[in-house]
Design a protein around this nucleic acid. Structure first.
Lengths: 198, 198
DNA sequence: TAATATAAATCAAACGTTTGTTTTAATCAA
DNA sequence: TTGATTAAAACAAACGTTTGATTTATATTA
């Protein structure tokens, strides 16, 4: 199914996803989206009820279901090391399989956009899960850190910091497989938290 | 010296810094800036030659001089561990003493703004320095990692990920001193890179 | 099946508002 | 009075959105 065969609604969503990631929400105009989608600019209001709702429609469509909340993972989340491993895997899988969505969300957080309120229900479960794991791990003596604040920032920063185009000036990206990145990042984080023999 | 006594030029700069950090460059209008600065909206063109140049004037005014390039630090940068310590200290000091500037710059990177080109001269020296330190440390067997890509993202993500308002929903920030944050972050990073006895 | 009726999708054009910028007018100190 | 500074008004361009007409697709009826 080529893009021209898709219905306009989906074409708009895909175009918006790409442009939001490339230029930010505020930096992207309705007309730009619709030009790329090959659709009339009125269709954004027609289908979604406005530009802002395109953003939330993207969340609906493309944000992954929170595996960390799955009943089958309840046990894993009781073990700090295994839990953190799962956490990193899930976040990185999302970031690497749909980088546009990840970048778009990262932007919204960065610019402290008014859309963050609508974003919270999607994100907070992950933060809560991570916070719980760090607390437990610290209490059990598995993780070593003083400030929960700094520890959370450490793990989150490591995991969600996106590959920036800006870096291409500094060096060429190497081609590491998804599994490789997940493994190495996990090692960084667990070591950083003071876990030996990682 | 109260804000009303300052000349309009500086009042505009301070207002812009605050608003850019709170709402992003695209999310902030010239009129908003001037209202907060208590100045007429034409002054932005008059003094700076346009909104975009206000951004670069902020860099001129408030971006710290790169201590890593100081002659007195040349020796330190030859020692990976000490170099990384200095790097983290310098970046965190900037982030914690002028969070508005840090957030503003982080935003520009996040939204891949057209202003990044003008930002590069300020940022790339830091990236280059870090990359050099990681390369050296790996070669000397002090740091353990496979992918330079992932390692750079790891350190940068840890260091520049800003305290997000968004987090306040999840937990209360703890009050850690600047020195405490620097120490703990350094420990996270060096451990993560495989340095023992940190 | 063919003609008709209904609904959905798409369109060009225009809406009122806000954007960044420029021009004009007034004010003020020297 | 002169020259610098500030305020006010006006500018074209771009913004997100709405409109009303038209096309396309689906369903209904004869």
């Amino acid at each position: 199914m080529s893009q021209s065969e898709m219905d306009a609604k989906m074409r708009i969503l895909l175009a918006a996803k790409q442009l939001f990631a490339e230029q930010g929400f505020d930096g992207t105009s309705v007309r730009q989206i619709c030009e790329k989608a090959g659709a009339n600019s009125s269709l954004i209001s027609y289908y979604f009820g406005g530009k802002e709702n395109v953003f939330f429609a993207l969340l609906d469509q493309f944000y992954p279901t929170n595996k960390l909340g799955d009943p089958e993972n309840i046990e894993i989340l009781k073990h700090p090391v295994e839990g953190v491993k799962l956490f990193i895997r899930e976040v990185l899988r999302f970031k690497l399989t749909d980088p546009e969505m990840h970048i778009m969300i990262h932007q919204e957080i960065a610019i402290r956009s008014p859309r963050i309120e609508g974003l919270k229900p999607y994100l907070i479960p992950y933060w809560e899960a991570l916070k719980g794991l760090l607390e437990r791990g610290k209490k059990e003596g598995i993780f070593q850190f003083d400030s929960m604040d700094t520890a959370l920032s450490f793990v989150m920063g490591t995991v969600i910091f996106p590959k920036s185009n800006f870096l291409e000036t500094v060096y060429e990206h190497d081609q590491t497989s998804m599994e490789g990145i997940i493994e190495e990042t996990t090692r960084f984080v667990l070591r950083g938290l003071g876990v030996k023999e990682v």
